[in-house]
Each structure stands twice: as structure tokens, then as C-alpha cells.
Design a protein around this nucleic acid. Structure first.
Lengths: 112, 112
DNA sequence: TAGTTATGCAACCAAATGGTTGCCTATTCC
DNA sequence: GGAATAGGCAACCATTTGGTTGCATAACTA
């Protein structure tokens, strides 16, 4: 029995809507536990902007961090993405190519 | 061999970021081929607002429509959602509970 | 043909978003 | 202790976003 809260779906979708944030997730996936400064390298924006993005990812529960001395180590949390994939995207679990053919037929005005 | 264009991922993510648009997709999933007016029923916003949302969904290739007399029939296209689910979300295909445990360990500062 | 229904188009508006700069605090290193 | 490094916080700004109103056009229907 799984009692998942669909409550913060919106936060997750919104967090994923921005390319910079998706890039940050990608980077963390490649190397987990990076510091804030480390995550800034190569991104064409200020540290403060990156910190804002990470805060948004954190509120969506996609990223967590812990303080270590003067540094902040960031860790990715893949669970919310999976939850959404499973319970929202799986709504569309028809055979895809079949669905595409159906869409085309519909657009052409034939009965499906 | 699959040659997928990762180009309009951004449009899809952004389209999905809005709760009203997700609701519209849900409605079309329940009943495909609805008209614009039909899709407006029960939504607390003007027809024009709904039309804008549908235009965004269309640009993301999540919805298509055809003209039928004075009406516009809308059809859902589940393919882009599947594509993203498969090639982006599957990046996070570690065993999830294991990943969550790892995240906790990381936050607690123990080596994983 | 006249009225009603379905949609299109454009201007406008407030709030959210994504970014900046400036400055302050806390650690670490010499 | 003093300089350098890592990050926190707040004010500010332009653009995007999500919505509106107003009006025009096209197609059914009586």
C-alpha cells in the first residue's frame, strides 16, 4: 500500500520547467555532493542565481544539502521524479505508436 | 535506431508546469476530441485564457486540433510525454528506495 | 435573413520569474 | 590576526506569464 501525497506535484513540475534547473540536476546526477561554488562553474549566471535555483529544487524535494564547515554539499533526490513519472505520466500508458496513428486519423477527420 | 530531437523538451516541460494545462490534458484524456467551449466548462477562467493554454500545449506538440465547421476539435498527443519519461526521467533509474536511503546517509554526513 | 453560437485576435494588466548588484557573516589558511 | 574563500540576505529590475476585456468574424439555426 502506497500513500503518496500528490500535493507538491506542482512544485516538482515547476522546478523541472527551467532548463538551468534541469542542468543542475544533471550535474548532480553525474557527481553527487557538490558544493554551491562547484555547481556554479561553467554556468553563465551568478552564484546567487544558482542558489535561488537550488532553493527551488529543494522546495520541490528534488535536492537536499547539508552544511559542512563553510561549504554546502548538495545531494539529488530522484524519488519525486519517479513518483510523478509513475503516477502521472503512466496515465498516458497507451501503446504510443498506436496513439499517434489514432491522433493522425482524428486530425484527418476519419472516425477512429 | 531512434533519432529523437531533444529540441522541444523545454516546451514540453514548460507546458506541463502549469496546473491548468495539466488539467486540460487530463480532461482530454478522459474524453478526446472536445471543442474549445466544451473544454472551458467548469474551469474558472475565460475562453480566451483556455485558448492560450491550448496554444501552448499545441506548440509543445501535446495537443492537436482540427477545424470542423465553426468548432475546433482537440486531440491529445501522448507521445512527447512518453519520450521525455523514457529518455530524461529514466536517467534517474537507480533503485529508488536505495537512492533515498543514500540521500539520508549523505545528509547525515556518513560516507555512503 | 436575423439571432445565436463558436471561435479569432489584439491590447492591456498584475504578478511571478529569473536574473542582477551590493553588502554582510562565517570559515579556513598563512 | 588578516586575507581569502564560501555562502546568506535583501533590494532591485526587465521580461515572461496567466489572465482579462473588447471587438470582429464565421457558421449554424429558426
Amino acid at each position: 500500500m502506497v500513500a503518496y501525497s500528490t500535493m507538491n506535484d506542482d512544485a516538482v513540475f515547476k522546478a523541472l520547467a527551467d532548463a538551468s534547473r534541469r542542468k543542475l540536476l544533471d550535474r548532480l546526477r553525474q557527481k553527487n555532493g557538490q558544493t554551491l561554488s562547484e555547481l556554479c562553474h561553467g554556468l553563465e549566471m551568478t552564484r546567487q542565481a544558482v542558489a535561488k535555483h537550488l532553493a527551488i529544487l529543494q522546495k520541490a524535494n528534488l535536492v537536499a544539502w547539508r552544511r559542512e564547515g563553510r561549504e554546502r554539499l548538495h545531494f539529488i533526490n530522484p524519488v519525486p521524479i519517479h513518483s510523478i513519472a509513475e503516477r502521472w505520466i503512466s496515465k498516458f500508458e497507451h501503446p504510443r505508436l498506436q496513439a499517434l496513428a489514432k491522433l493522425k486519423r482524428n486530425l484527418e477527420g476519419k472516425e477512429s
